[in-house]
């Protein structure tokens, strides 16, 4: 089936299977920042933003995405023009292997978009669904705290 999606503010038309997951659709169409972690909605690695809210693309049907705004890491910054979260993650050493990083940054972005000065507890709550096995999270939390508006 054909479907029209809005990805990173651009309209795209894809040919998909009715039971196709958003993770597959995005990866098959070169949005490779979206990573496979578990395929069963338990680790947050595949997080994308749907209408600004963090959602797990591995358990989301693409067919339900008509009319919704999807944001992937490709949509928020480039190597030449990094988003402030991307800069802060680098500066704080919040990236080790980098495999959870796309989902982590998108969850952080969703948080900061609605709450410019989250407390540590609010940050921890917002990132609870994004697993990282490398960093121990401390540097990630710090990278977000550094961006708070006071």
């Amino acid at each position: 089936m054909k479907i029209q999606l809005t990805i990173n503010s651009k309209n795209k038309t894809f040919d998909i299977q009715p039971d196709e997951k958003l993770l597959e659709t995005l990866r098959n169409n070169n949005y490779k920042s979206v990573k496979f972690g578990c395929g069963e909605g338990t680790c947050g690695t595949c997080t994308v933003l749907i209408n600004g809210k963090p959602r797990l693309s591995c358990i989301t049907f693409t067919a339900q995405m008509t009319g919704k705004e999807i944001t992937t890491l490709e949509g928020i910054g480039t190597i030449e023009n990094l988003h402030k979260l991307q800069k802060s993650f680098l500066a704080e050493g919040a990236v080790q292997c980098g495999y959870c990083t796309p989902g982590m940054i998108l969850s952080a972005k969703a948080l900061l978009d609605k709450n410019k000065s989250p407390t540590e507890e609010e940050i921890k709550k917002a990132l609870d669904g994004n697993k990282c096995r490398c960093t121990g999270y401390g540097s990630i939390i710090k990278a977000i705290q550094k961006l708070q508006d006071h």
Partner: peptide, 20 residues
């Protein structure tokens, strides 16, 4: 504390893992 040499590519999702 230098920034990782592969860091900019990692935070933008451009670095390639096997699945990519």
């Amino acid at each position: 504390s230098k920034i990782k040499v592969d860091g900019p590519g990692l935070v933008t999702g451009k670095q390639k893992f096997v699945d990519d």
